[in-house]
Design a protein around this nucleic acid. Structure first.
Lengths: 147, 147
DNA sequence: TTGATAATGATAATCATTATCAATGAGGTA
DNA sequence: TACCTCATTGATAATGATTATCATTATCAA
C-alpha cells in the first residue's frame, strides 16, 4: 500500500496529521474500483469503523485528491464521484448514455493533440477532463427491439 | 431569431406551449454569450419582466437544452452552466485554473481521433465533453512575481 | 507525559435543484 | 367570440449534496 505512504507524506509536508479515520477512509477508497460517491466511500469505511462521520469523508476525499491520489470524475448529475489513481494509469472515459456503463480508454494521439493546444495558447498544462458520450452496442440493440 | 422558431417547433411537436416567460427566457439566453448559470439567465430575463420566477428558468433551460439549442458546460463546481448553440459552431474549452478565463478552440485532429474511439468500441456517438485545464500566460507571470 | 493544535462527529446552515399546488394562460373548438 | 381543457406559472416548501460550526478528542513533537 504505497498510497498510504504518499498520503502521510502529503499530510506531513502540509502541516496536517495522519489519523485513524483518514487511514480507514483512504484504504476503503483505494481498495474499491470505479467511480465512487462520498456515500459509497462512507459505506465502505463504516464496515471498518461505524463511528466514522460523513463530514470526515468529505474532508478526507478532498485531501486525497489534493495529494494527487484521486481525481474527480465527471458528474452526470447529482453527487460528485471520485476514482483513485493507484495502479491506474491516466485514461479517459467512454460513457453509455443508455445504461451508464463506463469504458476506460487511452488515446496517445489525443493526448498529443492536447499538448499542441496548450502550447498554441501558451498555457501551462494542468490536466484535462474528457468524456465521450454514446450508446453502447447492447443499448443500441435494446432500442431497436423496443420500437 | 431563428432559435425562436426552432423552439416553437420543438414545443409544438412535444405537446407543449409557447408562452411569454419562455420567449423572454430564450431571448435572454440566446443574446448572452458565455457560460451562464440559471441565476445569470434569470437576472437577464427579469430586466424584461421582473415577475419571472427562477423555477421557470430551471424548467425552461432544460427544454431549451432538450430542443438542441443549448448544451451544459462542464461545471468546475457549484451551479450548472449552459451555453447556447446559436451561431456557435462546435468547440471545446481551454480553462485557466488561475483566473477562470475560458478560451474556445476546435481541433479537427482530436475530433477525428474521438470518432475512432467510438467505432473501436462500436458506440453510437452522442457527443463529448472536453475541457483542458491549465495556467494562462498572465497567471503564470503573476505567479512568478508573487514568489 | 504534556501541551499546542489539528481533527472528529454531530448537527445546523447553505446552496442548487426539484416538487407541490392554487391561480392563470394558451390554444383549439363550438 | 366564448368556452373548455390542460399545460404553465410563480411562490414556496422540500430535497439532497456539501460546508460551516463547535465542543470534545486525538496526534505528535518536545
Amino acid at each position: 500500500m504505497n498510497e498510504l505512504v504518499k498520503f502521510e507524506q502529503y499530510l506531513r509536508t502540509h502541516g496536517q496529521k495522519m489519523t485513524r479515520p483518514r487511514r480507514i477512509i483512504l484504504k476503503a477508497f483505494i481498495e474499491t474500483e470505479g467511480h465512487l460517491t462520498t456515500e459509497d466511500i462512507l459505506r465502505e469505511a463504516k464496515k471498518v469503523d461505524p463511528g466514522i462521520g460523513q463530514a470526515t469523508v468529505f474532508r478526507t476525499i478532498r485531501l486525497i485528491a489534493d495529494a494527487g491520489l484521486a481525481r474527480e470524475a465527471l458528474q452526470d448529475d447529482g453527487a460528485r464521484k471520485f476514482e483513485h489513481l493507484a495502479d491506474h494509469p491516466h485514461h479517459d472515459h467512454l460513457l453509455c448514455v443508455g445504461c451508464g456503463k463506463i469504458i476506460e480508454f487511452l488515446s496517445p494521439a489525443i493526448e498529443k493533440e492536447q499538448q499542441k493546444i496548450f502550447s498554441q495558447y501558451a498555457f501551462l498544462p494542468r490536466g484535462h477532463m474528457m468524456e465521450l458520450l454514446g450508446l453502447c452496442p447492447e443499448c443500441q440493440a435494446k432500442q431497436k427491439k423496443g420500437e
